[in-house]
């Protein structure tokens, strides 16, 4: 499955400035793993020591928070977009 991952400004140093990259994966977790293979350094930024998403990292699949879906195990369909977004304050 080829999926697009949107990269926030804070992590674009890892992708040579690219705001969106394409990777392969059957699930959100696999896609993020593939991202770390293609652009080393992502895993340390996104995951805590237990392998879960860091507290202030939000991941969206097709604009839905993956915590409302199946978490990192959520299956992805070809052509879908995953967004990595830092948590922001309210208003």
């Amino acid at each position: 499955m080829s999926v697009s991952i949107r990269i926030p400004a804070q992590l674009r140093t890892l992708t040579a400035g690219a705001g969106e990259v394409a990777v392969e994966g059957q699930t959100v977790g696999e896609a993020l793993g593939a991202l770390d293979v293609a652009y080393p350094g992502f895993s340390g930024r996104l995951f805590d020591d237990d392998g879960g998403l860091r507290r202030f990292v939000n991941v969206f699949l097709a604009d839905e928070d993956v915590r409302f879906l199946g978490g990192l195990g959520t299956p992805v369909a070809s052509g879908q977009t995953i967004s990595i977004v830092p948590a922001v304050a309210g208003g």
Partner: peptide, 30 residues
């Protein structure tokens, strides 16, 4: 709101010349 906030967080990456009060200047705002 959470959808709007997510969109705004992504817009912040695309429009670094805008001051999003609850995103890129939230440290001061809060």
């Amino acid at each position: 709101y959470d959808d709007v906030n997510r969109l705004c967080a992504e817009l912040t990456s695309e429009h670094p010349s805008w001051a999003f009060v609850n995103v890129n200047v939230r440290t001061y705002y809060a």
